[in-house]
Write a protein that binds this DNA or RNA. Structure first.
Lengths: 201, 201
DNA sequence: CGGGATTTCTACCAATTGGTAGAGAGAACT
DNA sequence: AGTTCTCTCTACCAATTGGTAGAAATCCCG
């Protein structure tokens, strides 16, 4: 039999939305159920506990995030990979901000999300690091330490894409146009940071 | 009589610690009072409500953060300002991580902290932007848009300094040594990003 | 010492939290 | 038809939430 909509999936989606914006602590099962038009007991039917739901949400988010990044990894050139990542992250910032919000929750010190995400993303991290290492060795990008460089790249991209409130504090109202501007400025910034200084003969 | 320690200040400090790590939602007045060796009613004696306490904590954090940055603004050279900011932020990351954690809470979309911080920091933001604009015009740094460039700088610095869990995910255990490495790599990264390409004749 | 202010407490409170037990509705199979 | 399985519900629960009222303690000043 096919249900009108898969309830379990609806719960996951709504939970992701709420966890990613209001935060996990700020989300109650009752409130979640209310926006779903259910009782919380129905949620607990599909997931053993709030924490179980949280794990499932993170898992789904990781899957989606990884799927988005999979296209990017394929690129040969490091710069293409960076550009692709920026494209993916900014699309997510626009279309699924809560997903990025959830990833941000992961960076909270001591959060369990981090541990969960780590294992899921380790492959991508290693691949990216490897790619960067090679580029470093061949002098195609500037830098010393591939891992720390990757970390800097990640921080910059994620920050520019998600720190909306800081942006607002700087007098830039988030909009589609400003998002595009931000992206192109970010790309310029990253390109400058990665370009090896041209050897002036 | 002089109290051993100002209770109100103790509450503010402990609250900052908890808000900055566990988050506001994750902090209960009871738990807070327990770690202080008090009853929550004593907290409510000094602050009208949990939200009032939160506001006060943010206010104090802003004051401290601004005080730290005040030295930096004095520098004439843009690069000195950037370097100084990195130094300040990394010192805070080491000595007062909860303070940076609280600032992170501000970037949550819809948070009221942001509004509060905005007004307090607007002077610094404008000064920095102005300084960057001048440097851009004179060709001392590379870039198009001073505001967006400032935003990129902020995101990078803040991210590299605070995203400890991401770092752990990449196999780097946070330590004093790794923090120093991260800082020097960050400085190199930022320098590369800001340096105008030397005109190769 | 005594009186007033400051500070911390006990005693509650209504609302909300995550979670359990189990009834009831509905479809599905036999 | 009956039975079973899937799903959502009502009815609770103990613990915790932020917050109020006001009693006690402690302090300061004369």
């Amino acid at each position: 039999m096919m249900r009108v909509v898969n309830t379990r999936q609806r719960i996951l989606d709504t939970a992701l939305e709420s966890f990613g914006t209001t935060g996990v602590d700020g989300t109650s099962l009752d409130a979640l159920a209310r926006t779903l038009g259910l009782r919380k007991q129905s949620i607990l039917y599909y997931f053993q506990s709030k924490n179980g739901l949280f794990q499932a949400v993170v898992d789904q988010a990781a899957t989606e995030f990884i799927a988005e990044l999979d296209d990017v990894v394929g690129a040969d050139d490091v710069w293409d990979q960076v550009e692709g990542t920026v494209r993916v992250v900014f699309r997510l910032a626009l279309q699924r901000p809560a997903l990025l919000g959830l990833l941000r929750e992961a960076s909270r010190p001591g959060s369990m999300v981090a541990v969960q995400l780590t294992s899921r993303l380790s492959n991508h991290i290693e691949a990216a690091q490897h790619s960067l290492e090679l580029a470093l060795k061949e002098g195609r990008v500037a830098g010393d330490n591939a891992r720390l460089l990757l970390f800097s790249l990640y921080s910059t991209i994620m920050g520019v894409a998600t720190e909306v409130e800081v942006l607002r504090a700087m007098g830039i109202e988030p909009s589609l146009r400003s998002l595009a501007e931000r992206r192109s400025e970010l790309l310029r910034f990253l390109y400058a940071a990665l370009s090896p200084q041209p050897a002036c003969l």
